[in-house]
Design a protein around this nucleic acid. Structure first.
Lengths: 152, 152
DNA sequence: TCACATTTGATTGTGCACAACTGAATCGTG
DNA sequence: CACGATTCAGTTGTGCACAATCAAATGTGA
């Protein structure tokens, strides 16, 4: 018989922690006019420059159903520009406008501000991050394997 | 200057892991006719029995804006019943129907099935859970402290 | 080359999250 | 008791997530 007590569930701990930490970002990001997923998109673009919707989706594990309207909103407020890839007309390239690029400076202090508010040491946080990345990789590998198994 | 690289962000690791693990639950929960947040509500009710919306919200860190429509859906499919608290007419008590209670047996194998699919050892998972709980507590304490500070 | 499969991004529909607000019930203080 | 403040659940509006589907562009093999 399995243990169904809420406090024993790793899944709930993850779900609760993710929402709590996102909430910690909210006030800082509100000042930048960004939601949390929008901020993640900006992180990718600041780091890698112009990217296809596909590449953004791969980096953030999001599909076009989530990204398309999100990118449209960021385009409307003037942080992004989109253009077709001349080499492959199926692909759409998302780039930063000057305003979007300029936002990077304002965002620079966000991570350490939040990290400090988290009440955990930097070493502890990076250990946690590594564990979470390993978990995510294990889980996505399992999920991919399962769907493969079903299909074959 | 802060590090804005995506892979360095604990927040993204949390966000990605939470969604990946939720996705691992999805096929199992689909067989029970539950979404992941609906499953969490059922966990609380199986463990504590009839509870007010307020108590469900406290346990899951969700407000009535999320819970009200979710509970209405679970009531519609016949897992829950709601009644006013005779001792306090503001409060609504959510209880399990026989069908909702019976679902517990079918859900019993879900956690270990998912844990196995996660590819992590039980000891590692419980250590991760404890770290996440500590992080959530630290973050919510900070958030509460901040809003207190603003109000005063 | 041509028929067919695959890739890419967009759209539609459902169900959370969360802020802001509403109305009813209850509480607290004078 | 009275009455303003608070609590509680619900509603509205916005923005994700994600499944399912679509159309256009591209790839592939006979």
């Amino acid at each position: 018989m399995d243990d169904l007590r809420l406090k024993r569930q790793v899944c709930f701990a993850l779900y609760a922690a993710s929402r709590a930490v996102t909430g910690l970002y909210r006030p800082a990001l509100e000042r930048l006019g960004l939601t949390y997923p929008q901020y993640l998109v900006m992180l990718v673009l600041w780091e890698h420059g112009e990217s296809s919707v596909k590449d953004l989706g791969a980096a953030l594990m999001l599909d076009s159903g989530t990204l398309s309207p999100l990118l449209k909103r960021l385009e409307t407020v003037g942080y992004l520009a989109r253009r077709r890839d001349p080499a492959d007309e199926r692909s759409v390239l998302i780039g930063l406008t000057p305003r979007g690029e300029a936002l990077r400076g304002e965002a620079a202090t966000v991570p350490t501000t939040v990290a400090r508010a988290s009440g955990m040491a930097a070493k502890e946080l990076s250990a946690l991050r590594d564990t979470l990345v390993a978990l995510t990789e294990a889980v996505t590998a399992t999920a991919a394997h399962q769907t493969d198994g079903v299909r074959r």
